[in-house]
Design a protein around this nucleic acid. Structure first.
Lengths: 334, 334
DNA sequence: CTGTTAGCGCCTTCAC
DNA sequence: GTGAAGGCGCTAACAG
C-alpha cells in the first residue's frame, strides 16, 4: 500500500489541499508550510499517483505509439526503432510517457486502435509503419484524437505528419552521380504503388532535367525493395543497357543486390559502374565497397513528431506536414 | 468529454453498479438487463476508463520496459528491439499494456526508475540492456516490485531473469568446428569483464575438453566486441599461429572483422580458415561468405519474460532464472 | 437480482 | 494562507 497524499497531510499536520498545493508549486502557500510539507513528503518517500492525477485532470500525459505488426520480422524495423528512440526521448523530456501499441496485437483484441486509445485515455498518438490501406488508420486520423503520422502524408484537423523528403533525397542521389561525371544513369525503383517510389522517381526525373540529362524511360526498372529484385534489375541493366555507368536504387537492400551481382560478374564498383542506394541501413557500411546512400534522419523524425504532437496538445498548435531533409552519404560505391 | 458509465446507466435506466456488473460479466445480473446494458453501451460507443478502473482496483495492468540509453546509438539495439517485440506481443495477449522507460531519460528527470514505476503504479518491470554497474538497477531488483531482467543473472524474491545460455552457445560453436575436422581452434573473446565473455570462454573450454582437443591459452585473444578488434585479433592469429584453421569469435561484429582481414590477406574462408560468430545479427546473412553463427532466441526471450512476470503477478509464481537454448546457424563460413 | 453507499488518490472551487 | 466539500469514473461491500 503506497503512501498517499493523505499520509503526508497527516504527518505534516495540514490538510490534503495544502499538501497538493505545496507539492504543485502553487503560490498561495506560506514558505514555512511548503518547506514542512516537502520535508515530510521526502521523508515518507511519497510519490503522487499519476493514475489519480490523470483521473481528476482528465489527461494522462501519455501518448501512444502505434507500430505496424510488431510481431512479424519485417524490414522496416530498424527504421521504426530509431524513430521510436527519438520520439521517446523528446516525449519524456516534455514530461509525457509512451505506451506501445501494435497493429497485430490490438487487432486480435478486436478493438480498433482508436478504442484502445480511448480506453487508456491517451492524450495523443503517433502512428508509424502503417500501410495506407490499413482499415483502422483513417479512424484515428479522422478522429478528434490528436495524432501524428510518420511517413504518410495524412493530414486533417487533428492529424499531422512527419516524413522524409523523398523527392529531394532522390535528387541528391542523382545529382551526386551526375557530378561524378555520369550521364547514363539507371534507376531501380520499388513497387510502383508505394508512395515513396513515386516520390523517388519524381526526384530522379527532376534531377536529370535540372542537370540537362535526357530522361530515358527504358532505364527505369521496377523492383520490389528486396535484394533479389536488385540483382535481377542489375542483370537487366548489365545485359540490355551496357552503356549505363551508374545506378540509383530506391532502397539499400536492392542496391546490395546490385553490388552482389556486379561482384559476381567481375564488375568493379564504382569504376565500371557506380551504385547508390537509399535508406542508410546498417548494412551499407559493411558491404564491399561501402555503399553510398541517402540517409533519413530517423531519430529527428521521432523528435519532430513528438514536438508537433505535444505542441498540438499544449498550445493548440495546428497540425502540419513536415518534410525532413534527407542527407547524402558518400561512401565508396560512387 | 467521453461517455462514462453514468451515461450508460442513465440511458439504460439502471444503476451504475448494474452497468458495471453487466459489463464485467458478473453472474448476478439478469440476462435481460445484461442484454439491455450491453446494447446501450454499444450504441453509445462506451469505453470504460482504464484510468478510473486502475485507481479503484489498485493495479494498472501495465508493465514498464526499462531499456538502457535509448538515446545513444549503440550496438545492442536490434537485440533489444526483438526482445521488445516478443515481450509486447505476449504482454498484450495477456491483457497488459507496455510503457517505455529509458535510463537516459529517466535519469535526467532525476528520479530513479523505481520512483517512476511507483508514480505510474506499474504492476511490474522488465529490464534489459542495462549494465551490471548501473546504480539504479539494484534498486528495482531488490524492491518488492515484481521484475524480470534480460541477460543478467540477477535474482531475488521479486526478480527473475531470462537469458541465453552462453556457455552452451559457445559449446555448440566449437563442437561444430571440431566436427568439421578442426583441431587448432582459436577464440576471440569480448572484454574479460563482460559476463557473457566469461560464459563463452567457459563453453569454449568445455567443448574442447569434451572433444578431446587440448586447450591452448595462447589461442584465446581478447577483443572488445568491435569489428576493428576482430581484425586485429585475426592478424595476431594469422601471423603468430599459422596452424590455426578455425576461429570462434564471441561476437558477429568481430567475426566480420576477421572476415575482412582474411579477404584482405587473400585467405579463403572457410577453406584456409573457418570462422564462426555469435549473435546472428542481420549482417551475417549479407557478408561474403555468409557467416555461421550462434543465434539467440530474442523474440522468445521477450515472450518468456512476459510470461514469467505476469505469472508472478497473477498466480504468485516465484521468480526464476531461465536459460534459453541458443541455436547453431550454419552458413558458409565454416 | 438490483440499488445505495463508500471509497480509490488527487485537484479545485469556495469559504473562512 | 488554509481547510472543507465535491467530484473525476469506476468497483465492491452491504442491504434490500
Amino acid at each position: 500500500m503506497p503512501v498517499t497524499i493523505k499520509d503526508v497531510a497527516r504527518a505534516a499536520g495540514v490538510s490534503i489541499t495544502t499538501v497538493s498545493r505545496a507539492l504543485n508549486g502553487h503560490s498561495d502557500v506560506s514558505p514555512e508550510t511548503r518547506r514542512a510539507v516537502l520535508k515530510v513528503a521526502e521523508e515518507l518517500n511519497y510519490r503522487p499517483s499519476a493514475i489519480a492525477r490523470s483521473l481528476v485532470m482528465q489527461k494522462t500525459r501519455t501518448i501512444g505509439v502505434l507500430v505496424s505488426d510488431l510481431t512479424k520480422d519485417r524490414g522496416g524495423h530498424h527504421f521504426m526503432f530509431d524513430v521510436l528512440r527519438g520520439l521517446h526521448d523528446r516525449v519524456t523530456e516534455l514530461g509525457y510517457d509512451v505506451i506501445l501499441m501494435s497493429t497485430s496485437t490490438t487487432r486480435q483484441r478486436l478493438t480498433s486502435y482508436l478504442d484502445f486509445c480511448r480506453e487508456r485515455r491517451l492524450d495523443g498518438v503517433v502512428v508509424m509503419g502503417i500501410r495506407l490501406d490499413d482499415p483502422y488508420v483513417h479512424e484515428v486520423v479522422e478522429s478528434t484524437l490528436p495524432s501524428v503520422v510518420i511517413d504518410l502524408p495524412l493530414i486533417s484537423q487533428h492529424c499531422g505528419y512527419v516524413m522524409t523528403d523523398n523527392v529531394n533525397g532522390a535528387r541528391f542521389a542523382v545529382r551526386h552521380l551526375v557530378q561524378k561525371g555520369h550521364r547514363r544513369i539507371a534507376m531501380v525503383n520499388g513497387h510502383r504503388m508505394a508512395a515513396v517510389s513515386q516520390d523517388r522517381l519524381r526526384g530522379y526525373k527532376e534531377a536529370l532535367a535540372q542537370e540537362g540529362v535526357p530522361f530515358d524511360e527504358q532505364l527505369v526498372i521496377e523492383g520490389d525493395f528486396t535484394q533479389k529484385s536488385g540483382e535481377a534489375a542489375m542483370d537487366i541493366i548489365h545485359t540490355q543497357h551496357p552503356d549505363v555507368t551508374a545506378v540509383f536504387f530506391a532502397s539499400d537492400l536492392m542496391a546490395v543486390g546490385g553490388l552482389l551481382y556486379a561482384r559476381e560478374k567481375g564488375l568493379d564498383v564504382p569504376k565500371d559502374i557506380a551504385i547508390i542506394g537509399f535508406d542508410n541501413i546498417d548494412l551499407t557500411e559493411f558491404v564491399m565497397p561501402p555503399l553510398s546512400t541517402i540517409g533519413q534522419r530517423r531519430f529527428e523524425m521521432g523528435v519532430s513528431a513528438a514536438e508537433m504532437l505535444i505542441g498540438m496538445l499544449e498550445n493548440g498548435q495546428a497540425p502540419e506536414g513536415r518534410m525532413l531533409a534527407p542527407e547524402l552519404i558518400v561512401r565508396q560505391s560512387t
